[in-house]
Nucleic acid binder design. Structure first.
Lengths: 330, 330
DNA sequence: AATAATATGTCAACCGGTTATCTTATTTTT
DNA sequence: AAAAATAAGATAACCGGTTGACATATTATT
């Protein structure tokens, strides 16, 4: 049936067996030009007999397109990014694209390396959610790129949730439920990201209510260090009665620590998270959180990237409304 | 500095600017053959000036290797797979490989499509954790493949946790803590996967203790359907006082439903999960579960794949010991 | 000074497809 | 019947690198 192993059967072998030229086989493959029924059948028969699989690499080289999209994100091992990536991957696949992933681990060096290497792999486009700045490749390249939650470059569109609204909702909810000493945690302040809008909203709302805003900037990923930091926050602010945490994983840590320290939740201490992913809402439904419409954001990212790959740069930044998930932590 | 946009600078442009031949530039690129300091500098200067990036596609075509590895798993959006994939990706990257992902969504058709397409993309190897059977491409291909938790083909090595031991630990823990009516859930029975060892251990231990084993096979992903099924289990077995659930996400669902139905945990009802991922242990530390050494398994998968890519097929199946995570759900 | 060894570099074929261009056969139009 | 349109297929150049084979220059050996 299929000869031995499919030792690199090439188009020429098919052509020889079918008694036609390479061109004809290629035409059958791509349904181009005039072809008789008879020829088509002969070629198909030969392809089947040889178990022929075209070598995409050769096609890519000639066509100057790879049907590959690179995704650069801090890590797949996170409820938010894994959901985002899964959704984008599904849609990219439906558009005929494969996905090359790069986990930057929040390391600018690694991000730059990935970027260079994915570009060397001739990806047709890029969707980035890694949070580093000042990487020159983003500046001078005409590769279609879509960014998540960050401002890479004025020419690169940013997709984000309505972070200000999210921060406002979260802070107001805490205040409305009686919290007075409310602490906020966010990513590194230096990062020029729409995410910082959450902090600004938090500060605005706090001041509006005559309360003192206090933000901690978390610029590392290490879980143990986070644990220590949160414990320190509780020590330094024994009267804290609310926190607005910029992502659900951290919020979960805080919830665990608070419980361990004897705070009753939500009576003594209230927490609002951010993201509201499938995973966190399944595993930790009691966490009150701001839900980003991840699926819609993923869909838009892919649609916009497809448009840009096709030369349509008309669409710009997109901001998505957030929703409050009423768990039991407020 | 860099001319306009880096409009496809090719090796020939560099050669021309440096006043040498293509070969010489290629040699500089690959540090092959004899080269004078002077030439090397000239070439580097030219590459910098033109902001040259080699086109990997062309190299791939000639070298017949892509430095690409395909990962086919049900989905990235899952604590277990996302951790596994993140770990493998990191290690593959360190070995000079990029990762092409494919989410099969437990759909055999999609899995086969991915497989064909990744092969067409000329990946140098494949690591699969998708759970479908009878896909012919796995049979007749000499592509290096490593499988997770499934038996694809006798020639393809399988990496798995000690599923029998895990099932035994879980069941004994439940029994030792006084549970009598213990139900087990697992993946589809038809699936010839090492995962079924968990069920066999469960059955063995139950019988050993004179208890009646009862297994539900869950062969779908839909969360709502799962919710309904679990509620039905509670209705059909009102005296159930323990469950051994084959993954932490499902265990979490059960925990939530049980709590909602008024069971006190662990007094009235005990649950043991399986996987013990970073995410579930962070978000749901109270869940008692069997921990797979995901990181080590990922490391081994990558090491074995690298060996096979280098023609060393000596290593075979690998089984990893599991550990019990003592949460508060038993 | 002749010979060998070593250093430096070029030429052209090759990887496996795609496609513009051209030739030849067949059918339709005038 | 001649001219035009349509169908079928072949040739060869091309995509952008890599590398074996070969040519020439420089240095070391006898």
């Amino acid at each position: 049936m299929y000869g031995e192993v499919n030792m690199k059967v090439k188009i020429e072998d098919v052509a020889k067996l079918a008694g036609v030229s390479k061109t004809t086989v290629s035409r059958v493959l791509n349904s181009r030009g005039y072809l008789s029924e008879k020829t088509i059948n002969k070629v198909h028969a030969a392809m089947d007999e040889l178990n022929y699989r075209p070598n995409v690499i050769a096609r890519q080289l000639f066509k100057q397109e790879t049907k590959l999209v690179g995704l650069i994100f801090p890590t797949v091992n996170d409820p938010f990014y894994s959901q985002l990536i899964a959704e984008m991957e599904k849609r990219l696949f439906n558009n005929g694209f494969k996905v090359l992933i790069g986990d930057s681990m929040n390391d600018p060096k690694k991000e730059e390396l990935y970027l260079q290497q994915l570009m060397a792999h001739q990806v047709d486009g890029l969707i980035v959610g890694a949070h580093n700045q000042g990487i020159p490749e983003y500046e001078n390249s005409n590769l279609p790129i879509i960014a998540f939650d960050r401002i890479v470059n004025p020419k690169i569109p940013v997709i984000s949730s309505d972070n200000y609204q999210g921060g406002k909702l979260a802070t107001e909810l805490l205040i409305d439920n009686g919290a007075k000493v409310i602490i906020h945690t966010n990513g590194p302040k230096t990062l020029e990201s729409p995410t910082q809008e959450r902090r600004i909203a938090y500060q605005d709302v706090m001041k509006e209510h005559g309360l003192e805003p206090l933000t901690y900037y978390i610029d590392f990923d290490d879980r143990k260090k986070k644990d220590l930091l949160f414990r320190k926050i509780f020590r330094d602010h024994p009267n804290v009665d609310g926190m607005f945490i910029s992502n659900d994983m951290d919020a979960s840590l805080v919830l665990n620590i608070a419980t361990e320290l004897g705070y009753r939740i939500p009576e003594d201490f209230k927490v609002v998270g951010y993201d509201g992913t499938y995973i966190t809402r399944t595993l930790l439904p009691r966490l009150t959180t701001i839900v980003q419409p991840i699926d819609k954001m993923a869909e838009t990212a892919v649609t916009m990237l497809m448009a840009r790959i096709n030369g349509d740069n008309s669409e710009g930044n997109k901001v998505f409304p957030v929703e409050l998930w009423r768990g039991k932590s407020v």
